[in-house]
Design a protein around this nucleic acid. Sequence first.
DNA 1: GGACTAACAGATCGATCGTTCTATTTTACA
DNA 2: TGTAAAATAGAACGATCGATCTGTTAGTCC
Lengths: 222, 222
Amino acid sequence: MPSSRTTGPSDLMGKGPTTRARIIDDAIRVASVEGLGGLTIGRLAELTGMSKSGLFAHFASREAVELAVLVAAISRFRDGVVLPAVREPRGEPRIRALVKGWHRWANDSATMPGGCILTHAAAELDDRPGPARELVADAWRQWNETLRRAAAIAVEEGHFRADLDTMLFAFQLQGIILSAHQSQRLLRAPGTAARLFRAVDALIDWARPVPGSARPPRRSRG
Amino acid sequence: MPSSRTTGPSDLMGKGPTTRARIIDDAIRVASVEGLGGLTIGRLAELTGMSKSGLFAHFASREAVELAVLVAAISRFRDGVVLPAVREPRGEPRIRALVKGWHRWANDSATMPGGCILTHAAAELDDRPGPARELVADAWRQWNETLRRAAAIAVEEGHFRADLDTMLFAFQLQGIILSAHQSQRLLRAPGTAARLFRAVDALIDWARPVPGSARPPRRSRG
DNA sequence: GGACTAACAGATCGATCGTTCTATTTTACA
DNA sequence: TGTAAAATAGAACGATCGATCTGTTAGTCC
């Protein structure tokens, strides 16, 4: 059985792309723990068992390594969290799938021993202008929009009340996610996972239609 | 009028402590934007107009600079956010004061142009064992406990329902705070402040006693 | 005002940073 | 199997890192 690499290419190409993917694999692990600032040519060379120049030949600059790592991580996030969730039923189940997918993602210590690399990068880059910052910011904006649209769909389905502020809901849900990440990684608080899902339950309850003023969902109106 | 330095000492001592405080002042600004990893002896020397060795003489090591910065920031946080809030009336007003104090703190671009330095440090250190990590983790644990106790007091006052899970409430409130910080600093989303306070309103509403099953608050029982 | 001390500057150290150069090895292909 | 190309290694560059040393200035106290 081959490695569990997700950046891995096929066997049809030369060994260049495969070692490049292996470098990025290791780089993601490093950046997960120490941040993008921990991505050093010498360090990555040591990790992959290559020479500095041999490793460096795969990239144009150190910044290119950083960007490649972010692009790979964002791609993994889409494939591992967002896409599986949109295959779930519309409305509340999809929202729960998004949260569950994120929880799996952030706790996969094999590929990211230091927790979500994009959360780390978000804090690291939020005041450092440049392409890396824009990459991460756009990824988080997309994630926020994914959450908002999922909430809007839940409104359409009648799972959530019609006057729900979907932007506020996305804001709240993202807060739960960030709080869980900090509780887990920094505070090492026991029972964090349970608290995460309880908070999601509470938020979803809060977003539900008020029993008295129930209306038929949009789909059954036609 | 002297500078607005909060780390500032009295005029009774030599000039040593005052320059040390000035160094830490600048260091907090740097770390707010670039993180603790951006704290370089050469950089701080350039910022304060000193020589590297002259600056370094005030600390035992680079790590000592890092710790001094964190201790100073945590002290400022207590004085600027926590202490003013506990002087507010018990219960819901105090909770709102905590949030408002944090919002002021995180948006004081004069002392922290890159947002809350402790939020930045939390993400930066969460997987790097050492005294700096413990310092930041303890500070956040204390903040979490402050939020939880404020919620417990609100329960006592009858502002919140008796069966409220105060740990969950602190978790949720911290999530709102972190979401607001990310929305502000990374996404640069307009209307973030308004959304922060709307989310707090919603959370407090959610924590309130259910109108039908109202009980007299604990204090008026005696 | 002279002696003592704290505060600071200047020079320098070895290590590591990103990067570039030239060699050498390995792979792909005809 | 020979050959062009791709992949990697080795050595070296200037810059900066944290840290140490020896001087020199500036403030304090008798």
